[in-house]
């Protein structure tokens, strides 16, 4: 049994799961609170990634530190997007919501192509390519840091939702709309802020993407397809489900990539196969639905 490869596979899977989880968190929040699957979430990640790139290239700001800027920036973008495109369709049938967010996604991808061309953009830092030797396993320093940030992000989100007033309001609204309103929670405002927070989360994961990968106009879309897979795997609107789903996807991709012949080719398709398999077995996703 080749232990080094085995543990390396686990390490790879866990690390990439961190990235996937950070992308899925915002999506989960919006779904949980408002019941909308935001097809354009990936593009918000992409915008975060580009912001990081430009902040780095033009102002020399370290990509991981730039989170302090991209988070509030994307928060504001989220509020703007919510106000003008999401709010009007909150009560529309799911078809409209799907089409609107899909349209938004296409629009933003192409806008990015027009503004910044299609070349892939990388950032390179003093610690890029630095690697840590943990026992039998090699771990990239950047990957480890971004993983730590994802974990921190999730922890912060959980604390927010359970301990802070706004967060509790979001949970209340997600469970019972009318009830919340009756006890004086401003449902509209809560929705808006939830969307803003979700976009801020997207912005942060964009910074992480820029750091450990590279960015180009379609990067968000590819990641969002994986996020959908995770949503479906782990339960819709459920944070611990999102984490579990991320781990399942990350580890599966890693093991297929390492152990299956021609696995590198099949690995990227795992998310699609998983979606199909899971939905056939359990049409409402592994943890059931809250809304339709």
């Amino acid at each position: 049994m080749d232990w080094p490869s085995f543990f390396q596979s686990i390490a790879n899977g866990v690390l990439i799961a961190g990235l996937y989880a950070s992308v899925t968190l915002g999506l989960t929040l919006v779904l949980g609170v408002m019941g909308i699957v935001n097809f354009a979430h990936g593009e918000l990640v992409m915008l975060g990634a580009y912001s990081t790139f430009w902040l780095f290239t033009m102002l020399g700001i370290d990509p991981l530190l730039s989170i302090a800027i991209t988070a509030p920036l994307l928060f504001l973008v989220g509020i703007f997007v919510y106000r003008f495109t999401i709010r009007p369709i909150l009560k529309d049938p799911p078809l409209n919501q799907l089409l609107l967010t899909l349209g938004l996604s296409i629009f933003l991808q192409n806008l990015a192509m027009i503004l910044w061309k299609t070349d892939s953009r990388s950032v390179i830092t003093s610690y890029s390519g630095m690697s840590l030797h943990l026992g039998m396993v090699h771990v990239g320093a950047t990957r480890l840091i971004t993983f730590a940030i994802s974990v921190a992000l999730t922890a912060v989100l959980i604390v927010f939702l359970h301990k802070m007033r706004l967060g509790k309001a979001m949970r209340a609204v997600s469970e019972n709309n009318t009830g919340s309103w009756l006890v004086g929670i401003n449902v509209q405002k809560t929705y808006m802020l939830a969307f803003g927070v979700a976009c801020a989360l997207a912005g942060v994961s964009g910074s992480l993407v820029s750091t450990i990968m590279y960015t180009y106009p379609m990067v968000g879309f590819k990641l969002s397809l994986k996020a959908f897979c995770i949503l479906i795997l782990g339960g819709l609107g459920n944070i611990s489900g999102a984490l579990l789903g991320s781990l399942v996807l990350g580890l599966t991709e890693s093991f297929v990539g390492t152990y299956v012949p021609e696995g590198s080719g099949w690995a990227e398709g795992i998310s699609f196969f998983l979606i199909i398999v899971v939905l056939i077995i359990k049409p409402t996703g592994l943890a059931g639905t809250r809304r339709e």
Binding site: D92, I106, F107, L108
Partner: peptide
């Protein structure tokens, strides 16, 4: 980009 814009505006 026209596709995206059309979808959003139509909805």
């Amino acid at each position: 980009i026209a596709y995206g814009l059309i979808l959003v505006l139509v909805v």
